[in-house]
Design a protein around this nucleic acid. Sequence first.
DNA 1: TGCTTGGCGTTGACAAAACG
DNA 2: CGTTTTGTCAACGCCAAGCA
Length: 758
Amino acid sequence: NYDNEDQQVDFLSFQEFLESIHVPEGKPITFQRFQQWFSRHKKGKQLNDAHKLFEEFRGVITGPATDKSWLSREDYLALGIKETIFLQEEREAVYSVFEKYLGFLQENKLYDSNVVSHQYLEKLQARYDFVIVDEVQDLTNIQLYLIIKSLHHVHDFILCGDSNQIVHPNFFSWSKVKSLFYKQEDLGAAENLIRILNTNYRNSPQVTEIANKILKIKNNRFGSIDKESHYLVESNGHTQGEVVFLQDNDHIKQELDKKTKASTRFAVIVMTPEQKPMAQQHFSTPLVFTIQEAKGLEYENIILYNFLSQEEQRYREISKGVSAEDLDKDLKFSRAKDKTDKSLEIYKFYINSLYVALTRAIKNLYWIESAPKQQLLGLLGLDNAQASLEIADSNSSLDDWRQEAHKLELQGKQEQAERIREEILKQKTPNWTVISGESLEALKQQAFEQNNKKAKLELFEYALVYEDRKLLNSLIKADFKPAKNPAKGLQLLQQKHYAAYSFKKPDAAIKQVNQYGPDFRNIFNQTPLMVAAWVGNVGVIKALFEQGADTEKVDENGFTALQIALSQASGDENYARKKLADTYLPLEPTSISIQVDGRLIKLDKHQMEFFMLNMMIALFYRTLPKKIVYSAGAFSSQDFVDAVQHMPNSVLPERRKKRAYLSSILSKNEFTKDDKHNRKLFFRIKRGHYLFNPNLALKVGDEWLNVYDLLSIDKLATQHRKQEQWWRVDMNERSSEILEHNKNIIKSQISSIATKQE
DNA sequence: TGCTTGGCGTTGACAAAACG
DNA sequence: CGTTTTGTCAACGCCAAGCA
């Protein structure tokens, strides 16, 4: 094991990698968008497979070339037969659609990551010592080339992938990767580039055996793709399992349904989205996946439902000419005989799908076919379909299901996760109205224009939760008495709304989570995690994590749970000393994504800049108004010293609490400075006074948001003070006048900088 | 093994503001 | 107006890794 705290590691998706060079305008094109567009503009009959076209565009026309963004019509027409999915006579039409596709991208502010990758080649500066790429089979040449160009030394990388896992007709092959290195002189020819790992850590030997037979059939029928994909897998055989071949009869389906519907250890896989509803008629488990969705998942037991029978003809074609004896022989390396026969390409997709589907099974495979007599099944040694089946009960607990739902959600399988939440966990959507946006405006109207007492109380509570002094002040003006005593109000608020979070034991809070899910919003638009952070209840925070609570959600103020905890700690010494030590670490996300100068930067949680940015956000509404009134400035290092002094050393070590250090971080990260490690977070209003860089954006959900759209300067207001005898003028009036005046100065400073950079 | 390098907190010189 | 505090900025120096 290698561990080095001083080494900075970025974990990036390819999308994020592109953004870290420069955030492209618009959104990346997805297959869904492409399909929508294509189905509306479909012309002619021969080109009707959206998948195939999309792959051709991405994998053939824009993907492979490293010297241009896309192939010209001549180049495309001149491609060799092994280089495209389409036949010579179709290509003219394909290219015409491609040209329309480029127009479609431009009109809709979409971008193709291949084209962008090519454009970025010149922008890119080497900045990594080492790169590891996983699932290379999903990257195109140009993308890979761009990644490797970001290295200081071209040979410092590891690529991992499996070309048998491709379930769309894409053009990845290891030999292409090799020729990329061969052709590009600047990368240098690499010898011994590829190592094959053929031990399988997932599947039982029984499943592996079938998988190997599929590889052999594929080899026999279609020849080898390249030498590197030319191998069989060995199971390391930790777990034993079985492969059960079944008839498609009611008894079996009922038995399977009965035993699987309450278990997280069974999943059903079908070939296409169209087959899903059929499978769902017979299987009530939420875990029904198409082959595209099943990629990357694994389950102890997999049910393949009519995987072959739906596409009987295609699979008959696949097994054509392959005999049982052929499978006994070793793999031999040879290319397909008739290379013009593109019809075979599509079959590769079907056989790869089958391979992927059954290798999802860790232990057992239950394979149901309505047409059990098929040549391919015979070749796999599955000739006698059982007519009956008994399997053991394996019901999973609600906790297992919750974790399953959480896991699926993280992998973007929303549909299945939602079905689990609805059908098994019986989670409901809350029946209250969340105060936010329009409903907040409506509430204000009721309170101030119709003088509705209940609305005023609700607004008051909302203002307390968010420390919204502007709202508090206007409530005082509207003669709402309780607003003059916010401390008392807070006490009542806690009793009324946060009672469930006041006990050491998390049971009461968890009960709500079980009802509404881990990230439900209360009437103030807070998730349970935010409330727990607000209250500082460690027990509840920990329990919420077990339920899969999300740390990156933001509240109405634009605060994450971590920032709420920091904000509480800055104003409450007791919270800082006793509670923060336990609340800070679990609430910390591993990094935050910021955008500056159009580039994405991930601030790792170990970096002081990460802490400072969170801290400044946390102090925004609480500390900034005072500063603006009394010093006509913004945050100074003293504010950070004050906020940080009572924090435990586990959160911030002693050396990081010193003024000189905090001050040097502020100074180092001024956006005007030109330093290698400058994160450009801050903007110096005047000597010693800092605010956020006006051109700083944060990632909220999957949208980029400018800091000043997230945090509103307009909402800043002073704290109302009691009328004193000696006041010659109303000090509350006076200070809010000063505040407004200084706010305007700051706002104009911000906008002058923000526009200058555009 | 010792020299080099990169990262990161510390220090100190100088400047500017605040204080009295 | 002199003294003290605070801010800015870059060089310093420590440490662990990398390398020959």
